[in-house]
Each structure stands twice: as C-alpha cells, then as structure tokens.
Design a protein around this nucleic acid. Structure first.
Length: 104
DNA sequence: ATTAAGGCATGAA
DNA sequence: GTTCATGCCTTAA
C-alpha cells in the first residue's frame, strides 16, 4: 500500500467534532507535515477526505483551500462541534490524542 | 497575563 | 530551482 493512501485512510477516520494536525498525520504516515498538506491538496477527491478537519499544530486553519475557503472550513468545524475562534481552532479538549482511536 | 495575527526558517516534493 | 494546505517564534491588541 502506498504511504499516502494510508494518510487518506486516517483522514477518513477522523470523527466529526475532532480535528487532526498535519504533523500528527505526517508522523502517523512517516511523512513530513508539509508533504501531508501537499498530498491533501493534490488529493483525488476533496469530498472524500474531510481535509477541513485537518488544521495546523498551532490550531490555526490552513491557507487557500480549494473546497470553499477558510471561512467555510471554520463554519464547517463549528457545525461539527469544534470550537473555532476567528481563525484558530480550540485544541484544548483534544489533548495529546487527537484521533488516536482508529478503526481496528 | 492571554489571545490573535503575521513573519521567518526548514524540509520535502 | 521553485513552491508550499507547516511549524515555531515574535509582536501587537
């Protein structure tokens, strides 16, 4: 299996109301955080991968966004129960285990 | 003191 | 050689 495909699997397993960081995903796949963002940007199906749940380690939203814009991402996260302030996500309730629970 | 925003540096594709 | 959907640090409010 390709490593990047593993990344897609992880993103698809991120539950609503929870956010992941590029660094975490990259670490899980053994990729660099930037590589993760690049792969998600060049993703074959934006609707298939909830990239809007993927934020930076700082909790800030990412740049650009081809699926609707940063503002749309913020609204989407808020709709899922994620606390988002202006352009920053509230990673407090997530602690160290963002989405550590993966499907067995 | 805390939070928000912006800019700079690093690595990989 | 160039580009960046990151990360961390610094500065401002």
């Amino acid at each position: 299996m390709g490593s990047d495909l593993n990344l897609y699997e992880l993103v698809q397993r991120v539950p609503a109301g929870q956010v992941t960081t590029y660094g975490e995903l990259g670490r899980r796949c053994g990729l660099s955080p930037r590589t993760v963002g690049r792969i998600l940007h060049t993703n074959p199906d934006p609707k298939r991968y909830p990239c809007h749940r993927v934020v930076r380690s700082d909790g800030r939203l990412a740049t650009g966004h081809a699926f609707g814009g940063k503002n749309a991402q913020k609204q989407k996260l808020l709709a899922e129960g994620v606390s988002v302030t202006r352009n920053r996500v509230n990673l407090k309730p997530f602690g160290q285990a963002f989405f550590a629970k993966r499907a067995a």
